[in-house]
Design a binder for these strands. Structure first.
Lengths: 140, 140
DNA sequence: TTAAGGTAGATGCAAACGCATAGAACTTCA
DNA sequence: TGAAGTTCTATGCGTTTGCATCTACCTTAA
């Protein structure tokens, strides 16, 4: 077992443990955690996002994301309009209601995240962010 | 945005990026990545595992895991027998075919993991493993 | 001993997922 | 310009998932 494999296993385990813990908290209201993830990603990037761009950040197949966006549009949380520059594509953004929902859930969730990671020192938090950032940006 | 929240977001993103990359690799054969995860977890712990124990390591609801184990038993990869000490429970272990399948997939997969994490220094790998270990072991 | 409460795993069912593929729009290049 | 190849999103379809619930078994304590 190489160091790299141990590190990956540790990352997977901590991800699984934390996702389960967050999922069990009673903050999600009418949204699933995956739906929240979509709203959150849209809230981060102020400009409208392409489906494919959004898909890079969400752990979901392209068709599954397409249908999830369908549902969020139906529920009035997301706005989908054609991209004027590329008529194949769409531009996705939060509606005011979507932004409000994201924030209403995001605030208590952010607090649980802070609580869950409070076992780490500030240095460790920085190291974790830096290392994970390096990982996700590496091309291949 | 606190440091903790930035760190969690970085962890989520790197997890999503790497899972997608691994998933796209052509090493999984007849198994889905989630099924492999179950076989791998069983292969790590030599003794038979309880369903609930296995469930702690796999990002799946209890009913979904129960049925996935069903399928793996049907396919002859996992052995499920009643626990003599607790007749509610079951003891899960790999069959020889299951162990063989796990290893056949595990070897090339471990190589891609090593490749994907090769952007990190040995020190960073150790830090990542240590930090993630700390995260998953913290009770609350 | 037995009733009340808790835990382990299985099952019914609707919702959501992934794979394969379709269709439409861009791009490239002969 | 137009045919071939690529990219972007949507849809058909069978499989898998999660939620709620069930049954069976263990535990506690009266």
């Amino acid at each position: 077992m190489t160091r790299a494999n141990e590190a990956w296993e540790a990352l997977m385990t901590s991800y699984a443990v934390l996702v389960k813990r967050f999922n069990a908290e009673d903050v999600w209201g009418e949204l699933s955690m995956r739906e929240y993830d979509v709203l959150y990603t849209l809230s981060k990037c102020d400009g409208p996002l392409r489906m494919s761009e959004l898909n890079r950040h969400v752990l979901l197949s392209q068709p599954a994301l397409s249908r999830m966006v369908d549902r969020l549009v139906d529920r009035g949380l997301v706005d989908r309009c054609p991209d004027p520059g590329d008529r194949r594509g769409v531009r996705l953004s939060l509606t005011p209601a979507g932004r409000e929902t994201q924030q209403a859930i995001g605030r208590p969730h952010a607090r649980s995240v802070t609580r869950a990671l409070s076992v780490l020192t500030p240095q460790e938090l920085d190291q974790l962010a830096a290392i994970c950032g390096k990982l996700s940006q590496s091309e291949e």
